[in-house]
Computed example of a mutant assay.
Amino acid sequence: MFRRYTLAATMVFVGAALIFVGWLVEDSGYLADLLLQLGSTALLVVPVLYIERQLSQVRQKLTDLRAEMDSISRGYERARQTEAAGLSRTATLERKVAEARDQARHGRHTAAEVSELFRSGQDGERIAALGMMQGNHRLVDAGAIVAAISGSRSAFEQFQALRLAVSAWGELRPLDQDLVMSAVTMQMQPGGYIQPGTDRRRLAQQLQSLANAAGDRKEER
């Protein structure tokens, strides 16, 4: 990182010097134009270096987050592949979500990092991200909730997204609440996956109650 700062400072100094000399050159032709162009180019390199450094930091933080969530995501995927569907497997999966919730309470990672883990991750990483959002609402991403409800990769993932929506409802913006409810309503239709008699239906109905209460408060105003 120090080398990048040194290089950026050097480029600023060189660029400014070339432009200054270009202004001073009595010959306003080729030489002056060349110096001004070289100086301008050197200055333009600085924001490029800054952006590259920022992107490098983001990539490294995401790599670190993936490493921290590795045992959770792998454990989740292994349980789904090797254990028969039923209460025992569900309990195993719930333990993995609980581990992710505990990890999130340390407060090391940002909402952007956790959102990217969900967006670009495998099934286990998506579950880990939802668990982190449950454990620390500062990490909540409404887009992830909507995606996990409307395009879930499993019934368990959809359930965790609904659970997150219920627990974080009061912290979502009105627009995000509307988006969540649109996804829920679609999934409650005959062709959806939130059907009567399921735990997901119960959570969806809780969300409907929360949305209705919010609407009543708006009317009172």
Results as ranks from 00 to 15, higher is better:
M1S: 14
F2M: 14
F2S: 13
R3V: 15
R4K: 11
Y5S: 12
T6F: 14
T6E: 15
V12Y: 07
V14P: 04
V14F: 06
V14N: 05
G15M: 04
A17H: 12
A17C: 13
L18Y: 10
L18F: 13
I19D: 01
F20N: 14
V21E: 10
V21W: 12
G22H: 05
W23Y: 12
E26L: 07
G29S: 04
G29V: 01
A32V: 03
A32E: 01
L34A: 03
Q37W: 12
L38R: 06
G39D: 02
S40A: 14
L43R: 04
L44M: 10
V45L: 15
V46E: 07
P47Y: 06
L49Y: 04
Y50H: 14
E52H: 10
Q54I: 09
S56M: 07
S56I: 04
S56H: 11
Q57H: 11
R59Y: 09
T63M: 09
T63R: 14
L65G: 11
R66A: 08
R66Q: 13
E68K: 12
I72L: 02
I72N: 01
I72S: 01
S73G: 08
S73R: 07
R74I: 00
E77T: 03
R78M: 05
A79I: 06
A79Q: 06
A79Y: 09
R80C: 11
T82C: 07
E83C: 10
A84H: 10
A84T: 12
G86P: 08
L87T: 12
R89S: 00
A98D: 13
R101T: 03
R101M: 13
Q103A: 09
R105A: 10
G107W: 01
G107T: 01
H109R: 06
T110F: 08
T110I: 04
E113D: 11
V114K: 00
V114I: 01
S115Q: 14
E116R: 13
F118H: 09
S120K: 09
Q122K: 06
G124W: 00
E125C: 11
E125R: 07
A128F: 01
A129F: 01
A129M: 01
A129L: 03
L130P: 01
G131S: 00
Q134T: 05
N136A: 06
L139Y: 05
A142I: 03
V146L: 00
I149V: 07
I149K: 00
S150P: 06
S152F: 06
Q158W: 02
F159Q: 11
L162R: 06
R163A: 11
L164C: 05
L164K: 04
A168S: 15
W169Q: 03
G170A: 02
E171S: 15
E171R: 15
L172D: 08
P174N: 02
P174Y: 00
D176R: 04
L179M: 14
V180E: 12
M181V: 03
M181A: 01
V184E: 00
T185E: 14
M186W: 11
Q187P: 02
Q187H: 04
Q189C: 06
I194G: 01
Q195I: 10
P196C: 03
R201D: 10
R201E: 15
L203M: 01
A204D: 02
Q205W: 09
Q206A: 10
Q208V: 14
N212F: 15
N212M: 14
A214N: 11
G215I: 02
G215D: 09
R217C: 09
E219L: 15
R221E: 12
